[in-house]
Design a protein around this nucleic acid. Structure first.
Lengths: 133, 133
DNA sequence: CCAGATCTTTACGTTGACGTCAACGTAAGC
DNA sequence: GCTTACGTTGACGTCAACGTAAAGATCTGG
């Protein structure tokens, strides 16, 4: 059905539009090893896997991870099977990440709960103003 | 029961030890308006509310907020009732923060789920190595 | 064939969040 | 009164994560 047989590719400008980041940012991520697009001549050609990686990077960024941490995380996703030592190391890394993420979620839940309290107080104050006017 | 009648105070060195940050960081937060300890002469004297604020700041930091965002958040907690416009503005700010935090939580849940998949694959590979040796 | 648009590399600038001195004040113990 | 420890205020350094500007390559429509 697709006229390109599923071999769809994108230029850097499309990624800029689709992901809401600048071209500078995308090239910077490539420079830091987070992306590795093909080249057609001198120009960058992005495929689906590049888009997936970029999406992972941006999610990591939203979570406040440094690019170094993001690199170790996204590299987990497409790690080769490797030997037992590598696998155990990877499992350790994953466990560490899990602890980190779970603490973040606790922090988030606490903050949300406290903001709800402040919002309630706020609405009470508003109601009081309306009643007392 | 407390020999100081609940009027406990702390020096900067205690905060350093208790919170695991440097004195430089604590003074920097004060410079940015996030803390405002009393002074005994020239030296800083921290009370319970200062510790609470510092804990809030550090939690915001763990969540990846900038110090400017953290300032707006912690200022929400001890905002004066104020007038209706202020209250509505505060409610808007809280709503925006909630959206932000809820997206972060979704990001975290997705990441945790994907890391679980990678970990499973990892354990399978390890089992395969053990069986094939 | 050429202007304009898009992409490229290179390199320096900027901002936030501190680190790292340097130089000085002050309180405690001997 | 002198040292030692701790605290203080500048002031400059640093690092990550880009922004921004310069100058050339490449493609595209007219």
């Amino acid at each position: 059905m697709g006229s390109d047989g599923g071999q769809r590719t994108w230029g850097i400008a499309q990624l800029v539009e689709d992901f809401g980041v600048t071209a500078r940012t995308i090239r910077f991520y490539e420079d830091r090893g987070l992306l590795a697009p093909r080249r057609r001549g001198q120009q960058r050609v992005y495929e689906v896997r590049d888009r997936v990686r970029l999406a992972l990077v941006l999610r990591g960024r939203r979570l406040g991870f440094s690019l170094g941490e993001i690199a170790t995380i996204v590299d987990m996703y497409d790690a080769e099977p490797g030997e037992a030592g590598q696998l155990r190391y990877l499992l350790d890394q994953i466990a560490a990440r899990r602890l980190d993420l779970e603490r973040r979620r606790r922090d988030i839940d606490e903050t949300l709960a406290e903001l709800a309290v402040v919002a309630d107080r706020c609405r009470d104050d508003l109601a009081g103003l309306a009643a007392g006017s």
